[in-house]
Design a protein around this nucleic acid. Sequence first.
DNA 1: AGTAGGATGGGCT
DNA 2: GCCCATCCTACTC
Length: 169
Amino acid sequence: MQRLERAFFRQSAPTLAPQLLGKMLCRKRGRQVLRLRITETEAYYGETDTACHASRGRTPRTAVMYGDGGHAYIYLCYGMHEMFNIVSGGVGFPEAVLVRGVEGFSGPGRLTRGLAITRALNREDLTVSRQLWLEDDGAEAAFTAAPRIGIGYASARDRARRWRFTLRG
DNA sequence: AGTAGGATGGGCT
DNA sequence: GCCCATCCTACTC
């Protein structure tokens, strides 16, 4: 088991998102560590991506996306669902990968509830955290690409982008 | 200071 | 397929 480090997360979101498939999302709970394989991701890429929260510019909420790759961006959706994103790329360009599914939990709201991932972990540095991190166990990961979910407000061009990645098999 | 709407999910028809 | 719970963010006045 190898913890994923900074250089890996500094790739652009559309490149990083499929590479996160098959990696282990690790969450410490008491004495135990839950390790669940990532099965579904989505890329959100820059201020010009009208589906990305940063499309309206930098705000207190989105500031973490402008920071270095490898940090957690966690926000509340529809007043009840915590969404877990991994900031990608380098400093200054806002982008992130939404983790939409892990083995045992399909759906971005369900997996955060199942792993007790809340906004208390917003901005957590996943390269050094003892609470939340990622590991590579060397598994191969074939995937399929499709349009992103729940972004009807975005431009037709951005709705059509195939930036949703699902583990095949 | 007030408010519209959202990167969802479960339950019912 | 439709409805809606539930609350924060960001935009408007």
